[in-house]
Computed example of a mutant assay.
Amino acid sequence: MGHDAQGIDAVLADFARRPNVPMIDDHLREAMTLCIERGLDRLPVPGSGQTLLRWQQLAAVGGIDLALLKLYEGHTDALAILQELACAPFTEPGIWGVWAAEPPSARVGVSARNGDEVRLNGRKAWCSGAQQIDYALITAWTADDQPQLVAVRLDQPGITIDAQAWQAVGMATTASVDVHFDSAVGHCVGESGAYLSRPGFWQGGAGIAAAWYGAAASLARTLHRQRQQGRPDPHADAHLGSVDAALHGASAALHACAAWIDAHPEADARLSVQRVRAQVEMAVEHVCRHVGRALGATPFCRDPQFARLAVDLPVFIRQSHAERDLAQLGELLAARETEDWSL
Rank of each mutant, 00 (worst) to 15 (best):
H290A: 11
Q146C: 12
Q164T: 13
W141C: 05
G200S: 14
L271V: 11
T33V: 05
F90R: 02
G230R: 06
R17E: 11
Q148K: 05
M282A: 14
S48Q: 10
L137F: 09
Q156M: 10
G193M: 11
I208F: 01
D268M: 01
H264M: 02
R227C: 15
A209R: 05
V315E: 08
S218T: 00
R113M: 15
G122W: 07
Q132H: 04
S218A: 15
C127V: 03
A209H: 03
L52C: 03
R107C: 11
H321W: 13
E102G: 01
T142C: 11
A246L: 00
F181W: 03
C87Q: 12
D182Q: 12
D162W: 09
G207V: 00
R225V: 08
Q328E: 09
L79T: 05
L28V: 02
D116F: 13
L223K: 08
A310N: 08
V108F: 02
V284A: 08
Q6T: 11
V45C: 12
C188W: 09
N121W: 00
R107Y: 01
P157R: 10
P147M: 09
A59G: 13
V108R: 01
R318W: 01
V98I: 12
K70L: 07
A194F: 04
T338K: 04
P44E: 11
R29F: 01
E30G: 12
L68R: 04
F90Y: 14
G39W: 05
A143N: 00
L52W: 08
I24W: 09
I95V: 14
S111M: 07
I64G: 05
G186L: 03
R275T: 06
L295Y: 10
L137V: 06
G2L: 05
C127K: 06
G109P: 00
P304W: 09
D178A: 12
A5H: 15
A100F: 06
R275Q: 06
A140S: 14
C35R: 13
V45L: 13
A307S: 15
S111G: 11
S176I: 00
I208G: 02
A80W: 08
R153H: 09
G204W: 07
V311F: 03
F316T: 00
R119C: 13
M23V: 14
A269H: 07
W99Y: 06
A172G: 04
G109K: 04
A294T: 02
G170W: 04
R38F: 01
R308L: 04
A31S: 14
R275F: 08
G205M: 10
H321E: 09
F181G: 06
P265S: 12
A112F: 04
F306W: 10
R123T: 14
D155P: 02
Q203V: 02
I36L: 14
